[in-house]
């Protein structure tokens, strides 16, 4: 994920002679020795294991039977008596679908807010000239420096004064235009050659037409990136929804799943099952969007 984020615009500046996709691109430069291949794959497997190891462990824990040891001297990933009963228990213990519904509402608000707000703001900062644009940029950069935790209580007091305490809108509002997303969109718009814009101005296009017909089509990849970021951020957030929400009916999934681990009851298998249930939508979301995510890498600005 990290590399695609930095890469989107590079192929535009140096189109390779033959049609090469990003994944096989390395072969275009030189052929690599078998030894290097082994080293590369070895490193890749290592990183894959480090990244998804904890996830696999959770998955295997959630499937382990009640008579099976969860913590063994050497972690065992294959349940000897696999069972789905912990998922059933998790579903029975808490209204997971209601919580998930609340999470969907929050995530939709946050994703919508970021896609619209961050794209518009990013375009304005990249392409429009207006008084105080530098000041706005500076303000955005400075808010990025503030750790979210430091403003937590002040933010809550604000939301409460707006009358949004204990509402899903109150949960979503502070994250609806993420400053980092504005910056990302600005960077994406800046990378579109100015000549395109100038040509459009000559053709008589106004600011909004240039934004819609020239800007947006060229930053779809980045929009997919911020969509995913916004979704994951909204879906995974725990502390903020916990503080805003009071009524259990309105809890989001991360907060609601806490009911699975009480003070004196802590069956790691059920907790793991709850974690997997919360995790599945993220996988699905990424799977749907990854096409655009990687397409953004290939897209060049000047294609005709």
């Amino acid at each position: 994920m990290g590399t695609t984020n930095a890469a989107p615009r590079t192929p535009a500046t140096a189109p390779p002679p033959t049609r090469v996709t990003a994944r096989t691109g390395a072969r275009g430069f030189s052929t690599i020795s078998p030894r290097e291949t082994v080293v590369r794959y070895g490193l890749m497997v290592l990183v894959v294991f480090l990244t998804i190891g904890p996830f696999l462990w959770q998955l295997s824990t959630s499937l382990k039977g009640a008579a099976e040891d969860v913590y063994t001297r050497t972690p065992s990933f294959l349940p000897t008596s696999p069972t789905l009963e912990h998922y059933v228990t998790a579903f029975q213990a808490v209204p997971i679908l209601d919580f998930a519904g609340n999470s969907v509402v929050v995530a939709a608000l946050v994703v919508g807010g970021n896609v619209v707000g961050a794209t518009l703001a990013g375009y304005a900062l990249a392409r429009l000239r207006f008084r105080g644009s530098r000041l706005v940029m500076a303000a955005i950069l400075f808010t990025l420096l503030l750790p979210g935790e430091a403003t937590l209580v002040a933010q809550y007091l604000t939301i409460r004064q707006l009358g949004l305490a204990d509402t899903l809108l109150g949960v979503a509002l502070p994250g609806m235009v993420g400053m980092i997303n504005v910056l990302l969109m600005r960077t994406a718009f800046v990378a579109i050659p100015k000549e395109l814009d100038e040509a459009a101005i000559v053709d008589g296009a106004n600011a909004f037409q240039r934004f819609w017909r020239i800007g947006v089509p060229n930053v779809k990849g980045m929009i997919a990136v911020i969509t995913i970021f916004a979704f994951i951020g909204a879906w995974d957030d725990f502390l903020w929804p916990l503080i805003v929400l009071t009524t259990p009916d309105r809890f989001t999934l991360t907060v609601g799943l806490q009911y699975l681990s009480g003070v004196f009851t802590n069956n790691p298998r059920i907790v793991a099952a709850g974690t997997m249930i919360a995790f599945i939508p993220i996988v699905a979301f990424f799977a749907v969007l990854q096409r655009y995510f990687f397409r953004g890498v290939d897209e060049g600005a000047i294609k005709g």
Binding site: L152, V153, Y156, L157, L239, L242, I243, T246, Q258, G262
Partner: peptide
């Protein structure tokens, strides 16, 4: 009766008090 989740209880209580 309100029951708060296990994690983040200290933050929850402090924000309640602040408000």
């Amino acid at each position: 009766w309100l029951d708060q989740p296990g994690d983040g209880y200290s933050e929850k209580v402090l924000s309640q008090a602040a408000a």
